[in-house]
């Protein structure tokens, strides 16, 4: 910039460009000659110091960004009833506050307006509520103590909410989706199946689709009501490609005795011979065979 003089240049001097001191002004002096101590120019002297702090913060920030990937769960499913909702952390205190009996139910107006609205408005209008000349916080006991109490409340509510969430996760045995997703992704890559993207799983085509075990037995036994008419999955998991994951014996056992909460036992409904045939057919459902 134009710091050095060049005799061929026409330089317009505009005098000392620091903001002129106005005779009558209740605004603080724009330069700090009135204050004791060493002041220095904004650029480059002071800004350099501020940018040193900025450099440190950026390094820390980038380390965090590289070390901890941004979480991404499963695609939104409005009918997922087991999902435990969780707002972003800076809304947790509000979320927790509105759980308390005197802030919810019949008192929701108190919770929304009294406990959330009024403090926010008070904060917005703080300069008009705390009008004294004194600036030091220990000489403003009311303002300072209100702020400290609010801070303590916010910290406490946030902690309680987070603790409750962790408790719910543990109680229901839920792994947060973004973590579960990473685990499944790693498994999928290890198996050589490539990256795992929820909802984009490739379901292999059906092998020997004309087999009686499928066309008659499985239709009669109403397997398709849960596993889908093309065995593409529904309430129950997809069965195409099941042969890669389960052996014939495991399949036989699952049909015979049921599995988990969803799968009923078919002992009695189907003959052992029928189950045997279905299990055999299912065990042939391999991705490699479908290609």
């Amino acid at each position: 910039m134009a710091h050095k003089h060049d005799p061929n240049e026409k330089i317009v001097y505009v005098g000392d460009s620091r903001i002129r001191k106005r005779a009558k002004s209740n605004v603080s002096p724009p330069d700090y000659t009135a204050f004791p101590g060493k002041s220095e120019a904004f650029i480059p002297n002071f800004l350099l110091k501020e940018w040193m702090v900025g450099v440190v913060v950026l390094v820390g920030f980038l380390v965090l960004v590289i070390a901890e990937p941004a979480p991404l769960g499963y695609p939104a499913d409005p009918l997922n009833s087991s999902f435990i909702p969780m707002p972003d952390w800076y809304f947790l205190f509000l979320y927790q506050l509105l759980k308390y009996p005197y802030a919810s139910g019949d008192y929701i107006v108190l919770g929304i307006l009294g406990l959330s609205g009024i403090p926010f408005i008070a904060l917005l209008l703080a300069p008009f509520l705390d009008t004294g000349k004194e600036r030091r916080f220990y000489r403003r006991p009311i303002a300072s103590s209100l702020m400290l109490v609010s801070l303590a409340a916010i910290a406490y509510l946030t902690w309680v909410s987070w603790d409750h969430y962790q408790h719910e996760l543990a109680k229901n045995g839920v792994i947060p989706e973004h973590i579960e997703r990473e685990i499944k992704n790693e498994e999928s890559i290890e198996k050589g199946l490539g990256r795992w993207v929820p909802g984009k799983e490739k379901i292999p085509a059906m092998v020997e689709a004309e087999d009686v075990a499928f066309t008659e037995t499985m239709t009669q036994a109403a397997c398709i009501t849960c596993h889908g008419s093309e065995l593409e999955g529904g309430v129950g998991p997809a069965l195409r490609g099941i042969g890669d994951a389960r052996s014939k014996e495991e399949l036989f056992d699952a049909i015979m005795n049921g599995k988990g909460e969803g799968m009923p036992p078919f002992k009695g409904t189907l003959t052992d011979d029928q189950i045997e045939k279905v299990a055999t057919w299912l065990s042939k459902q391999k991705a490699a065979a479908a290609e």
Binding site: I84, K99, P101, G105, E168
Partner: peptide
């Protein structure tokens, strides 16, 4: 309700938390 522990009777009448 797993979120905030709201409870309802069989008729859906609110017992706790929910307005």
């Amino acid at each position: 309700c797993p979120c905030h522990g709201a409870r309802y009777t069989k008729d859906g009448k609110t017992l706790a938390v929910a307005p």
